[in-house]
Design a protein around this nucleic acid. Sequence first.
DNA 1: TTTGGCATGTAATCCGTTACATGATTAG
DNA 2: CTAATCATGTAACGGATTACATGCCAAA
Lengths: 191, 191
Amino acid sequence: MARRPKSRFLVLGLLSEGPKSGYDIKTEVEEVINHFWKESFGSIYPVLEQLEGEELIAPAPGPEDGRGRRAYVLTRKGRTALARWLAEPLEPDIVRNELLLKLYVGGDASADVLIRQVDTYRERNEAFLTLLSNAEREIVQAQKTEVAVSDRRLTYRLLTVRLGKRVASARIKWANDALLALDEMRAIESV
Amino acid sequence: MARRPKSRFLVLGLLSEGPKSGYDIKTEVEEVINHFWKESFGSIYPVLEQLEGEELIAPAPGPEDGRGRRAYVLTRKGRTALARWLAEPLEPDIVRNELLLKLYVGGDASADVLIRQVDTYRERNEAFLTLLSNAEREIVQAQKTEVAVSDRRLTYRLLTVRLGKRVASARIKWANDALLALDEMRAIESV
DNA sequence: TTTGGCATGTAATCCGTTACATGATTAG
DNA sequence: CTAATCATGTAACGGATTACATGCCAAA
């Protein structure tokens, strides 16, 4: 069994766009794909080392950076491995929803406590939606100016943002419904 | 920092409904809350032992089962701990969406590969939606027959199912849009 | 009697985060 | 000069899964 399967493909995947260092990868995770993926330095650097050992990536050619920066590129072998992974069936995602667990086992709690939780959930998703809408606008803007070559990546990127938006909107709608139901419960409680 | 051991509260929470054994808890996870929570024997039994050590739960009174079954109940201390956790702020959920990663880094792949992935995603979410709709129907049915005391738990349970439905529907809608966009890409490719 | 479900538990191991440790370079 | 940012890396730890190990009971 391959170690750190998911992190491996994040690194491999991001390197497919061009030469990058561990630091670059971390930055891209934080600034761009943070809404659907997180990764720490603690896995990025070991993975880079491991992938180099397997000859899936290699140090980028060109002048060394004075700062000790070490960029990598995909090897042909690495590109093949990435393509293979892209075609592999999706693993079922692990689901652990703390809010739903609280609702499910919160039968003894007052409605107030749960209302507060659902409200937080709504707020977070609203903030998230705003964030994604901005990202979407930026991509659409970029699509107008870029040449056709990069168009495909932008299209894919747009898709990732739009799933986020759809899901966030769904959660917000649910939260509004749920708050109505919980308010009713509270009204009954206080009688 | 002390990260929240989530498994503890699953166990504590499920025990708040009444005496249960480790096996019961596993069954309930599998059959009822599987859509938003998973848990293995490998954590359930150690957690039970740990909680007993902390006096948050205690062996259920009553006749021993011949089969070696060991049921537990919440202590008063346990009930307090649960209530405290219910009111605690939600931790940000860890997001790792394999499909979106594949889309994001799949710029070099043929549209076909991605179409297959998105299609699988749609199918899974459709199956999921069917499952949840059945669960919803059952709860609504139960609400008509149950007495008012258990009504609150049923209401909360219904809310958990409905969030699942909302999100699944959103994903399906997205997938349909995405498939249209990807089909267009494929058409361009083949020219 | 043998299969399947009930029932508990442990060991190996994985995947990943957090916190720590270190140092160079650049902007103010 | 000094703070922020760039940049790499390691050690400790932790939470959870998987696979394994064990055995009882009921029904076919």
